[in-house]
């Protein structure tokens, strides 16, 4: 399965819904999307990963890159994920301490630091 990406605006947040597999082949598409959003002035991103089937370290690298970009503009990057197999990858790499991870888009959109 390839990667699917769609974006929508909720208040001052931009929700990026990601589906399919994020790996060494597809991660550049996600990177392009995040870079484009930041370049267009969207600094508060919510990445909805509920429809992601597979995530590897290349995908993690892209998310960390996105976080760096939004932070440069005092923005935020929040993740939405309830899937244990995806959450496990964040845990073993220690990235649960880096990303705020929410159980729903509503919760992520409502969250403030």
């Amino acid at each position: 399965m390839d990667l699917s990406l769609s974006t929508r605006t909720v208040g001052d947040r931009t929700v990026v819904e990601v589906g399919g597999e994020i790996d060494v082949y597809t991660a550049p598409k996600l990177r392009e999307q995040l870079v484009e959003l930041v370049n267009d002035g969207s600094y508060h991103l919510v990445v909805d990963m509920e429809r992601v089937d597979f995530l590897d370290s290349t995908g993690l690298g892209v998310l960390v890159g996105g976080l760096k970009r939004v932070r440069a503009h005092e923005g935020s990057l929040r993740l939405v994920c309830n899937q244990e197999r995806i959450l496990k990858i964040f845990r073993i790499t220690g990235l649960t301490k880096v990303f705020p991870i929410h159980t729903s888009v509503d919760e992520a959109v409502a969250a403030t630091d």
């Binding site: 590897d56 370290s57 290349t58 993690l60 690298g61 073993i92 790499t93």
Partner: peptide, 17 residues
């Protein structure tokens, strides 16, 4: 440098798994 960071993260994931 980006690729190198991902390479190290890849090894971290493997050794964690």
């Amino acid at each position: 440098s980006d690729a190198e960071g991902e390479d190290e993260m890849g090894l971290a994931v493997i050794s964690g798994l």
